[in-house]
Design a protein around this nucleic acid. Sequence first.
DNA 1: CTAGGGTTAG
Length: 840
Amino acid sequence: MYAVPALAYTNSTISHSDQLKEGNFDVNSLELNEVGVLRVLTTMRDDPYLALSFLKRIEGNGASLPSVSAYAAVIRIVCSWSLDEKLSHLFVGIIRKGDEGRGFSVVDLLNAVGEAEEDEKLSFLLRSRVSSALVKAYAEVEMFDEAIDLFWGIEQLRWDADVGTYVVVVQALYRKGDSEGVEKFLGNLLSSETRKHCGFYMDFVEGLCVNEMSLVGYILLRPLRDANMLVDESGLATAYRKVVKGLCNEMKLEEAESALHDMEECGIDPDVSVYSAVIEGHRKNMSFSKALRFVNDKVAQQRKGIESPVILSSILQCWCQMGKFSEALDQVIAFRNLNITLDRFCYNVAFDALIKLGRVDEAIELFREMTCEGIDPDVVNYTTLIGGCCQQGRCELAIDLIMEMESKGKPPDIVVYNVLAGGLARNAENAYGILKLMEDRGVKPTSVTHSMVIQGLIVAGKIEEAEALNQSLEEHKPGGHEAGIIKGYCEAGRLDEAFERFIRLDFPLPKNVYFTLFTSLCAAKDIDKAQKLVERMWELGVEPVKSMYGKLIGAWCRVSDVRKAIRFLKVLKGREIVPDLFTYTIMIKTCCRLNKLKQADALFRDMKKRGIRPDVVTYTVLAKNNPEEIYTDMKEYGVKPDVFYYTTVINTYYRLNNEKRAHAAIQEMTRGGIVPDVATYTALINSYYRLNNGKKAYDLFREMKRRRICPDVVTYTVLLDHDPKLDMKREMRDLGIKRDVHYYTVLIHHKCKTGEVEEAERIFQEMKESGVEPDGVSYRAIIAGCLRNGYVRDAKRLYQEMREKGIEPPQTEASKNVVLHTKSNTETRVSRTKIQEALY
DNA sequence: CTAGGGTTAG
């Protein structure tokens, strides 16, 4: 280590640079005055990185801070190398120091940079570039006002900033929530004075989309288009595609569809990727029907590209996620009949659907057909099928498939082996053979493999074997397989054992284990335990998934235990956890259902107070009680009513015998361009029947069919209830509408009323045979019918049967029905006590 | 990690 006077360097540029790179250049021991520093920096003109690190060393020195000229010199060097990012980064550091920390202001620095350049033109360019970087730096440290001010200031100098700076400034305005500022900014940008080039706008729109401001991009598109600023036709198309896809990414699906609509109107064809983005957006939002409706609309418009395999697999996935596997398969068959090409992704969804329906052989058959069509199956296809075979207990097929993979030179990966090993175990087959096979093939079983096997053994009821395996692995990873054990118990439906196992653990498990157990407990209505689970997670310092709170409250609500729901809400409040919109809505709904209107109102006010904005759903729930009061509130919150809302309101007014208001609601709905659907028509039909206007009711039924709105079970139930003479059996069969409990109950009820008890009993039987489970209401209907007509023995038998199944006739709910129900059905109403009186 | 809304039976 040696110190050399600064002046000495002027002669030996290379040597000192090299020393610095080597790291043996010690700034601390240098007596560098300002002139010296500047001299050194001049020699570093061709090495910006060296200049930066030199500056850093002086900064770190502490004794003498770099002067404004030193910074200016480095900035000029970095700038001349177009290292914009480095420049911004440098500025971030400078800004963070503050005026005090560095001893000069940012304006001083800007001036110093500019003044050093004598050529006016170059100086101007330099200032532009440097200011640009500074704007970005301000934005990065979230000093939005400074960024914006600087931008406006320099904008006035007709300064030429790069696209990135423009994007950053919009972002600053956007993040401040300054929509006026954004508007002004865009207005300015579009004004003739600052007219930019087409390429600039293209990059700008893209920048907006990438930075989650696609909405701004969308707003900008129309004026750009109208002013013909994206001269190129393909330029406009590209910009539109970016905006639509960006909006989808940001889950702004309505806006995305609207942008898509605009582009189609301009005669631009969106490509497959744009359609796909919209569909996948809906699917990710769980709005499956919206996704499917979108596809149907596009097909109806005969849009090209909509039959691409990418989109087809999205469609199929939608059906499957809705649990409608047969529909998914119908779709596949339709595609194949139309000679539309499917890819292995589509086929994979089809395999999955067939397996879920228990049609393993057909899945394999389809797999063969796929191969014949020249599509080479990949490892995912095999995994789906192998897992599916095991799921349906067809292990021999699974093993055949894995052998096939080997013989075709597609070596199975760890995932396939894991799936197979777990699958064999859960079918009480020998899974150890697979572990051995894996070793032979050089694929080492992991703890995932073992967990899956252990889980499988538990599912198969081989508890001891599972424990033994767990023990043998315990030494390597204590407690490593508790997750598998608990999940196994859950899957086997042995929730008590799963819970026992879970509650005595004093270390945390992966979150999905908690989630599985939690969901199972809620489904089994063991809500106390589900709540204990959440509390235990807190104790172990594991943050429950947000949705668990709402699910738990939903579970309490489903069993009508508002008290416990409220108590848990208080626990949440104590932990400063704010319930979300879903949670509040379900609570409010339950309170309304149980006629605790004051409670409902309190919750509604509480949610608003805590900054949660009610949406249409919330207002729909409230509208069931009194559509009047909430109306203005809804408007104030800017919530737009939809079909669901109007259907409720219309129905409620009819129930309250307020025809005038009901009509007003219908008119308003029509004016708002909201089209009535099955439910709306059904509600209207029901209302007219209740007003003893059967003719009008039936006219409405015909009208809905004319308007291609397909009636459903509920519609036919209403028709049957009020007009039992109508024979709709065939029509229903033709439409493929299956009868449900409600429908059967009405039928039974009607037969009982006309004294045809034996027929009623036959129908009751038929219902059970067709796989429709009778519920409390249907039991009560048939039992009451038997009793009233003297079939006491049958009544007793059915009552017994009901109790054995643990079915309770629903308890008559408080006032709302009593107050609102105008239909006279007292003669058919037999209370539970009366049934019991008769039976014992 | 499908947590919430409308139409029907009593």
